[in-house]
Design a binder for these strands. Structure first.
Lengths: 341, 341
DNA sequence: TTGAAAGCGGTACCAG
DNA sequence: CTGGTACCGCTTTCAA
């Protein structure tokens, strides 16, 4: 392997000093350091001929800027988060930044680990999709990351910008929709890594039932893990209840898919025999059979907002802390219908 | 923001020199540089107290190692690639490496751009999921990346390790399965970013039909874009043919989902009226309604193999070039059934 | 067993 | 407008 091409090589070849090369490359000519068109051309030519690529680490060391942001993703198995990643990536690229991904697999230990790794990279910013906000706050303090630009989602950290999914209103709309269709026995699959997650959705579900004068039956709420498999198992449990619920709400679309699958396995037709709804409106939701009724905040939009917030803070650290609420609304598709007689 | 804690601070606090701190931290004590237990303890204590985090860029600049690998992903909208990412990430983490992701959105221009960015980071290794292998080979040469550890998937680059998805046998199995079920009019949705992609699957499809003595009808092959939407449109086109095909094969599971959706929209029951099958066996495939018959190579396993290959090469650049063939086999689920009379 | 010092490849200041 | 040069924070060789 031949030696790496450095700035020095370019300088020699163009017959100028390293400083000049640097100035040309970082395009400082537009600003306070003017450069002859001729010099500029020669440098660029040399760069081209030698195939020179500036060394990011050296640049970072000197400038303190990495042009990289880190993204902590809880669950690589949930399409919702892919959507968020896509949104983040789009904005990141617009800004000419790199994206470093770390997955936590919903485990607190790995959340900690990943955060530490991200800290060592001295990223210009971090977007944290949180599962365990409490622990993380502690960890962040220990890592002296306080100064850095950080945007969270899935939990609010004191003194940090945040994007918040507001599922309250959407949940209420969904419950009104189902009750309006005549459903009285509505099951809920609470498939999450940690009990506190999705609490708002569950709360609104319970409140809506109470308001409708329906008894709160513990059987109708199934707590289970966050995977599709868990969701399927949970849904089967609900379907084996007597009397059987006529509608099932999943805490997210993955759980709703579990319910769709469970219905098929029990020979039930959706929405004729059973209505199913979820949250998130993952990409695939409109393409499921039947298309899934769900509450949408917009995964990709969430990612975009988070990234925008982050870049705002990177550009101006003095800005007041912001919190962006992402409203969610009901999207009615084919998986919900009138309560069977 | 208080000044960053540096190695120097730790050294002062522990009453030793910077070199000693470095030796302790990189754990060179196990090797050739022995260190007193006492010194070691004092250093570690100081690290803890000050919350010292080594500066990755400085480390990289000096050592030439980034402990980072780059992963180029064609399409953030295809679950198959997310499986691959998960596999790569798992192995990467086992090795204590960071993962930098770049998406190309299937556009050659962005593939180029991303590659350049990855090159500037001087990653220890690159895993490239290719869409345009031809162009990329050229680009790689221009970037003088030849020396680096690179593993490709989705195309083979001269002198580089590669993981290859061998869909030939699986395709044949799938066609035999469908023909065995009595299907004679079998549609194919070729939804890809570039015609040459998925060529093997299409080839085997055509060959199987020919071997069965069936006429090659151009109508039965729909070429379209790579999104779910494209797939749906393509499938609708197939279903509107007369006589209607009794089975549809998607070039991947996304296209198959499009076919599932199209069937529902036309009031057809799968598999009673129409059989549907795909390729890749994405996570969700078993949970679709009906569960999808597909040809599986194992997305996550592909990622893992690619990463393993990469780390092997990083550890020993002298190794002969390897090529890992990932065999694929048919997974029969509920979406395929006997040809309707 | 520990310390001193020379870079790694850039950037940014200041002098010419 | 361009060149010299002092760093950024760490690793690594060599001496003590």
């Amino acid at each position: 392997m031949t030696r790496r091409v450095t700035q020095m090589d370019v300088a020699r070849r163009a017959g100028v000093s390293r400083a000049t090369v640097s100035n040309v490359i970082t395009n400082r000519s537009g600003g306070n350091v003017p450069i002859t068109e001729e010099t500029r051309r020669r440098v660029l030519e040399a760069v081209e001929e030698l195939g020179y690529q500036p060394h990011a680490a050296a640049r970072t060391l000197r400038s303190g800027l990495t042009h990289t942001i880190g993204l902590l993703v809880p669950d690589a198995g949930n399409p919702h988060f892919w959507g968020v990643v896509r949104g983040v990536e789009a904005v990141t690229r617009e800004h000419g930044y790199q994206l470093v991904l770390a997955f936590t697999a919903l485990e607190p230990e790995r959340e900690r680990e990943s955060l530490r790794a991200l800290a060592q990279q001295r990223m210009d910013g971090l977007i944290l999709l949180l599962t365990y906000p409490g622990r993380l706050a502690h960890e962040l303090a220990a890592l002296r990351l306080q100064g850095g630009a950080i945007v969270t989602f899935g939990g609010v950290l004191a003194g940090k910008d945040a994007v918040v999914q507001c599922y309250g209103q959407g949940s209420a709309q969904l419950m009104a929709h189902l009750l309006g269709l005549g459903h009285r026995r509505i099951g809920f699959i609470h498939g999450v890594a940690r009990r506190a997650l999705g609490a708002e959705r569950l709360l609104v579900y319970r409140r809506a039932l109470r308001s409708a004068g329906l008894p709160a039956e513990d059987d109708l709420v199934v707590h289970c893990g966050p995977t599709l498999e868990d969701g399927l198992a949970g849904a089967l449990r609900l379907l084996d209840l007597t009397p059987r619920p006529t509608a099932i709400v999943g805490v997210n679309d993955l759980m709703a898919m579990g319910a769709l699958q469970a219905a098929a396995q029990r020979g039930l037709s959706v929405p004729r025999d059973l209505s199913v709804a979820g949250f998130d409106d993952i990409d695939l939701a409109p393409y499921l059979v039947p298309p899934l009724t769900t509450v949408r905040a917009g995964s990709e939009e969430i990612g975009r907002q988070a990234a925008r917030l982050l870049f705002q803070r990177i550009q101006d650290p003095g800005l007041p802390i912001q919190r962006i609420d992402m409203p969610a609304h009901l999207v009615i598709r084919g998986s919900t219908g009138p309560c069977p007689p």
